[in-house]
Amino acid sequence: MTGAAGRPPAVFLMGPTASGKTDLAVALAGRFPFELISVDSALVYRGMDIGTAKPDAATLAACPHHLVDVVDPTERYSAGRFRSDALALMAEIGARGRIPLLVGGTMLYFKALKDGLGAALPEADPDLRAELEARAAVSGWPALHAELAGFDPVAAARIKANDSQRIQRAIEVYRLTGRPLSELLDQPAQALPYRLIELAVQPPERAVLHERINRRFRMMLEAGLVDELRRLRAGYALDPALPAMRSVGYRQAWQFLEGEIDAAGLYETGAAATRQLAKRQITWLRSWQGARHFDSTRPDLVEAVSAWLAERLSE
């Protein structure tokens, strides 16, 4: 199935956390020749099931999701790696005569896939990263941020002084390539070789989404989020600076285990952080060009989206 200029279709299904994206994607996969690719920076981690609202085993067996459980929580997974992995999977799905449906809420990953990341960036260098982490342990990440500003002021202006992951990556890229990260990212990328069909779902009332978020985070706690983190800490050499452990929910559960907050604080800060995440996702979606927006609370959502998709896929 091909469309404009012979390009095969690919579907983006976007939306804030707790908006019902997964249920909709699974329903659509039962109606169209879709294969699902997860676009979620937390679902990539093995063992992080409760706090990521990972689809259960029965759902994954009936409707497999690519890019779920692909790395250990001690590893780092970047937007660049996502783009590479997603493009390879999309080609494989197309070769099987099926259509990739990319579903999730990590808007940076969607943007990286759609718009590219500029010039090819170097792979992570473990030795260099260890050196930078050791320096930060002594002088602090703000000091390394100041160093970054000396050779890449554009990147430094975009990165907060305590954002260890992005500071580390920007310095790493400069040390490995001799060129500022901002310069490399600004280079044009190869166009995505797909005809994109983009949609977004969310409740029209923010209060509805907030109630869903609060209820879901409470259910995560009742399902054993804290015990899940205990198991992860026993099975892996984790620390709170790892991207996996900075994920919403796990960061707050870590603070609880360290005695920094009590049970009430865990719920309040975790739910609040999730609401802030949803707010950022909605801000992305407001500026996203080309997406058709649907009310995720409408009772005929699956039928409405299916009808719209059928028209787009036939073009």
Rank of each mutant, 00 (worst) to 15 (best):
residue 1 M to Y: 08
residue 2 T to W: 09
residue 3 G to F: 03
residue 3 G to T: 10
residue 14 M to H: 01
residue 15 G to F: 06
residue 18 A to H: 12
residue 18 A to E: 14
residue 22 T to K: 05
residue 23 D to V: 13
residue 23 D to G: 15
residue 23 D to W: 14
residue 25 A to K: 03
residue 33 P to H: 08
residue 37 I to T: 03
residue 38 S to Q: 03
residue 42 A to L: 15
residue 44 V to W: 06
residue 47 G to H: 09
residue 47 G to A: 01
residue 50 I to R: 06
residue 54 K to R: 13
residue 57 A to H: 10
residue 59 T to M: 09
residue 60 L to T: 12
residue 60 L to G: 02
residue 61 A to I: 04
residue 62 A to T: 01
residue 66 H to F: 13
residue 67 L to R: 02
residue 67 L to N: 02
residue 70 V to Y: 07
residue 70 V to Q: 05
residue 71 V to D: 05
residue 74 T to K: 00
residue 74 T to E: 10
residue 76 R to M: 10
residue 83 R to S: 00
residue 84 S to E: 15
residue 87 L to H: 01
residue 90 M to L: 00
residue 92 E to F: 04
residue 95 A to C: 09
residue 95 A to P: 09
residue 98 R to Q: 06
residue 98 R to S: 05
residue 98 R to D: 08
residue 99 I to A: 00
residue 100 P to E: 02
residue 103 V to A: 10
residue 104 G to K: 12
residue 105 G to L: 03
residue 107 M to N: 12
residue 111 K to N: 13
residue 114 K to T: 07
residue 117 L to D: 04
residue 117 L to E: 04
residue 125 D to M: 06
residue 125 D to E: 08
residue 128 L to T: 04
residue 132 L to P: 06
residue 133 E to R: 15
residue 134 A to L: 04
residue 134 A to R: 15
residue 135 R to P: 02
residue 138 V to D: 13
residue 143 A to C: 02
residue 146 A to P: 06
residue 147 E to K: 09
residue 152 D to E: 00
residue 155 A to C: 08
residue 155 A to E: 10
residue 156 A to I: 03
residue 161 A to G: 10
residue 161 A to V: 10
residue 167 I to H: 08
residue 171 I to H: 04
residue 172 E to Y: 05
residue 174 Y to D: 11
residue 189 A to Y: 02
residue 193 P to V: 00
residue 194 Y to H: 09
residue 194 Y to M: 06
residue 195 R to T: 15
residue 195 R to Q: 15
residue 201 V to Y: 02
residue 201 V to M: 06
residue 202 Q to P: 00
residue 205 E to F: 13
residue 205 E to C: 13
residue 207 A to L: 12
residue 210 H to T: 11
residue 210 H to E: 15
residue 211 E to S: 13
residue 215 R to W: 04
residue 218 R to K: 12
residue 224 G to C: 01
residue 228 E to D: 11
residue 232 L to S: 10
residue 235 G to I: 07
residue 238 L to W: 09
residue 240 P to F: 06
residue 244 A to Q: 04
residue 246 R to F: 05
residue 246 R to Y: 06
residue 249 G to W: 03
residue 251 R to E: 14
residue 252 Q to S: 11
residue 253 A to K: 00
residue 257 L to V: 01
residue 259 G to S: 09
residue 260 E to V: 13
residue 262 D to Y: 14
residue 267 Y to W: 15
residue 268 E to I: 11
residue 272 A to D: 09
residue 279 K to N: 11
residue 284 W to I: 02
residue 289 Q to P: 10
residue 289 Q to I: 14
residue 293 H to C: 12
residue 294 F to E: 01
residue 295 D to K: 00
residue 299 P to E: 15
residue 300 D to H: 08
residue 304 A to N: 13
residue 305 V to Y: 04
residue 305 V to W: 05
residue 305 V to K: 04
residue 309 L to H: 01
residue 311 E to N: 08
residue 314 S to K: 11
residue 314 S to N: 12
residue 315 E to P: 09
residue 315 E to L: 11
residue 315 E to T: 12
